[in-house]
Amino acid sequence: MASGIRSSYPHGEASHKEIERGDTVILDFGATYEGYVSDITRTIAVGQPDSRLDDSYYLVLEAQKAGLRAIRSGMKSKELDSIIRAPFIREGMNAHFTHGAGHSIGLDIHEAPYISSRSEHKFAEHTIMTIEPGLYFQGVGGVRIEDDVLVKSEDNCTLSKSPKSDLLVLPFY
């Protein structure tokens, strides 16, 4: 979990920082079952966040949903990366997407293949991939949404079921 300014680091680690009014909180978690792992990320806000983060949430969600819809067995990694980045490029925000768009999971939390603009790798059917776009604003905070998806030739299966359609804004007392 990383909050506030620490959420502007793509893979910030937990610290003793107290959550403050207006912070976004990036929750990156998973589970292990019979040796296999999962990986999910959700972003919430505590009090009303900076408008850049509020607006960015829906842009990240658009990018993430595009990736989940598009990934197919036989698709090249760089093609998927391009689809995921398209909303960020359209809105002039690609410079704020500072980590990979996803990776495979299995016995380890980060496995090849990775979703990358430089990779010619073709996704294989029955691979489990994460789709995890994010936007990060130095000195302000960040937003990331991540789900696990079972790759098929058609009708992929998103394995993560946690709600994400709206930025959850918790009250701050």
Rank of each mutant, 00 (worst) to 15 (best):
S51L: 04
R52G: 02
L53M: 04
D54H: 13
D55K: 13
D55G: 14
Y57C: 03
Y57Q: 06
Y58F: 08
L59G: 11
V60T: 13
L61E: 14
L61I: 10
L61C: 09
A63F: 00
A63R: 10
Q64M: 06
Q64K: 15
Q64H: 10
Q64C: 11
K65G: 11
K65Y: 11
K65T: 13
K65D: 10
K65V: 14
A66W: 09
G67V: 00
G67D: 12
L68Y: 12
A70C: 05
I71G: 10
R72T: 01
S73W: 11
S73K: 02
G74F: 00
G74E: 00
M75L: 06
M75S: 04
K78I: 03
K78Q: 03
L80S: 02
L80V: 03
L80M: 00
D81H: 12
D81E: 06
S82N: 09
S82F: 00
I83K: 01
R85P: 00
R85A: 00
A86V: 02
P87H: 05
F88A: 00
I89W: 06
I89R: 14
R90M: 05
R90C: 05
R90Y: 12
E91Y: 07
G92W: 08
M93I: 04
N94F: 15
N94I: 15
A95I: 14
H96L: 09
F97H: 13
F97T: 09
F97S: 09
F97I: 13
F97P: 07
T98M: 11
T98H: 08
H99E: 05
H99A: 13
G100H: 13
G100E: 12
A101W: 09
G102A: 04
G102Y: 02
H103F: 06
S104E: 08
S104M: 05
I105V: 08
I105Q: 01
G106V: 10
G106N: 07
D108R: 15
D108W: 12
P113A: 04
Y114T: 10
Y114A: 03
I115V: 10
I115C: 02
S117Q: 13
S117D: 14
S119K: 02
E120I: 09
H121Y: 15
K122L: 09
K122T: 15
A124M: 15
H126Q: 11
T127F: 01
M129W: 08
E132I: 13
E132W: 08
E132F: 07
E132Q: 14
P133Q: 13
L135D: 00
L135S: 06
F137K: 12
F137W: 04
Q138L: 09
G139I: 06
G139Q: 07
V140L: 02
V143F: 05
I145W: 06
E146S: 15
D147P: 12
D147K: 07
V149H: 02
V149E: 01
K152F: 01
K152S: 05
E154H: 10
D155Q: 15
D155C: 11
D155L: 06
